[in-house]
């Protein structure tokens, strides 16, 4: 192909335009909501009549909103910690010592995709509404189902971290040098998979903050989460609801920023060791 400079810059213009349009498309709903949340009054004009922060003031002094945020934080933190505590050892053991059994995990991580919340909620309502474990309407059922929802992401990320650091070789080396298995796991593997695990935890956390279906079908108003609060607020005060949406988006933004920072972080000495090898 002849290197046509004009053709190349045309291509560049085209691709730039495509990305520009895409960004406008993706951010337009967010921008609209932001504008709405800052409007003092909005009659028929295209732009609001005046600007104010009163809607943010009103939600951040609303005890019900703060309680909903607190509840969601509580469920998120507990679920992520429990999921990590249960999943990380399993993924490690299967990945390093029983690779053949990993198929089991691959099936378990597919389950939430095969049975979306609206489907799996039916059996859960039936099982946990009465009888020995009547936990619908409480925080416990949410922790139970959110575990199922986030485990695929924890699995994916921890497994990727383990294969990046060649966990099997590291453990063998540590054992050869006299470390016990437990010590090898705690002092060699855990510090190395920490960043990847943190990334997965943050992603899981933002998923839990955005979850609505399970919280509506299994818990309802008895344990109001952020999304339930937003749903109820939508029908009472639109502008307060828009302030909630913007706050939610700001949270996702911060979490994504953290993910980006952590994702770029490499285990200490990892890169230089590779260079030496070459």
């Amino acid at each position: 192909m002849k290197p046509k400079t004009s053709g190349k810059s045309d291509g560049r213009k085209w691709h730039g335009t495509v990305l520009g349009v895409l960004l406008v498309y993706l951010f337009l709903p967010v921008a609209g909501t932001l504008l709405f949340s800052l409007a003092r009054q909005w009659q028929d004009g295209i732009l609001p009549d005046g600007y104010t922060l009163q809607w943010y003031g009103s939600i951040f002094t609303d005890g019900r909103f703060l309680a909903a945020v607190g509840r969601t934080l509580l469920v998120g933190v507990i679920t992520v910690i429990v999921t990590l505590a249960l999943m990380v050892p399993v993924i490690f053991v299967l990945n390093v010592y029983f690779p053949k059994w990993e198929r089991l995990l691959q099936i378990s991580v597919l389950l939430p995709f095969a049975f979306p919340p609206v489907v799996s909620a039916i059996g859960l309502i039936k099982m946990y509404s009465s009888g020995p474990v009547a936990i619908t309407g409480t925080v416990w059922i949410l922790i139970g189902v959110y575990f199922i929802m986030i485990q695929p992401f924890i699995y994916q990320s921890v497994r990727n971290s383990l294969s990046t650091i060649n966990a099997k070789d590291l453990v063998e080396a540590a054992e050869m040098l006299g470390a016990s298995r437990m010590a090898a796991f705690r002092r060699v593997i855990l510090p190395n998979i920490l960043p990847g695990t943190l990334v997965a935890s943050l992603l899981s956390f933002s998923m839990i903050f955005g979850e609505f279906v399970m919280s509506r079908m299994l818990v309802g108003g008895q344990f109001e989460t952020v999304q339930m609060y937003l749903y109820n607020q939508m029908n009472t005060s639109g502008q307060a609801a828009s302030a909630v949406v913007v706050t939610y988006f700001a949270l996702i933004l911060v979490l994504s920023g953290l993910v980006l920072k952590l994702g770029a972080w490499k285990p200490k000495g990892y890169r230089s060791a590779q260079v030496e090898e070459e």
Binding site: L19, L23, L26, L28, P29, V30, G32, T33, F36, S206, M207, G210, F212, V213, Q227, L230, Y231, M234, G238, A241, S242, V245, Y248, F249, I252, L253, S256, V259, L260
Partner: peptide
Amino acid sequence: RMIMISNMITNFVGVPLAFAYMIL
């Protein structure tokens, strides 16, 4: 950057999305 933005926007579904579209 673009992949990160896409990743971020995938969280913007459900109730917040419905609400934002009502505003638009």
